[in-house]
Amino acid sequence: MTPASPLTAASAAPGKSRRIALAVLLLAICALPFLVTNYHTFQLTMVLVYAIALLGLNILTGYNGQISLGHGAFYAIGAYVAAILMDKWGVPYWATVPVAGLVCLAAGFLFGLPALRLEGLYLALATFALGVSMPQLLKYKHLEYWTGGVQGIVIMKPDPPFGLPINQDQWLYYFTLAIALVMFLLGWNLLRGRVGRSLIAIRDQPIAAEAMGVNNSLYKSLAFGVSAMYTGVAGALGAIAVQFVAPDSFNIFLSITFLVGIVIGGLASIPGAIYGAIFIQFVPNIADQISKAAPWAIYGVFMIGFVYLMPVGVAGAIRIAWARIRRGSGRNGQQ
């Protein structure tokens, strides 16, 4: 028996079974809002929102190695763009999402330009400063007409269109799910090909990448822009789901929450964004019952613990476990 055969057999079979599994999973995801309460539906919507934001941060930090400790700022910009458009100009909620994405694309690209000159730690410092100062910028009195100052802006919850027989929470869930699917498909296409390889090359071997013809500056600022766009889209969706924006909900701890999400979900992993989102949505809810401070204590311990014990995150651990199972079954089949 050739040594290659179990390998090819193993990888061909899951190709088909994986597609079936994905379809089943998608059906289950679509059925969820009918199985749980409205509040839980809202929570699931927030998981999707966070997953988009985490994918955005993962493009920048996980794939491209540019550390951002201030992505909450882009989430805030996305949220405020959506809220202001709806509040001041009566723009329909669904139209605010792409606008928020574009505004953040521009904002990310612009912040990425000076950030080009910053490496590792310094970029972390600059983005940390961005994250800390964001709430204060949003409270600025000359912007108060638009931002509503400390009070923030209240948004109306959208009704389901076309007289669909579902309630508002369920509709928001599907709306967010549709956008999340589009964003993940886009991200998947982007990261699997040439662009993804270039981003990783820049992260691991910047000089070699440059020497091989990768335009580092262009890719790095693009990564910043695209990353901010994802997070901005998530911010807009989050604002619509929560029906409220206020400066102090976008403080540095939001940025840290995103960092927690990608570290625990798995750096440079697309499914990792989903695992991370589940973690940051549900773990604080459970820990909240112990103390208001408990979720953060747990975040802190998990962050340090994952760096030491599981630097590949949940996604990496699942990948490793899966590979082990397959190798095991392949060997059994051979004998």
Partner: peptide, 8 residues
């Protein structure tokens, strides 16, 4: 990440 963890 470790330092941010300590901060938190």
């Amino acid at each position: 990440v470790v330092f941010i963890g300590l901060l938190v």
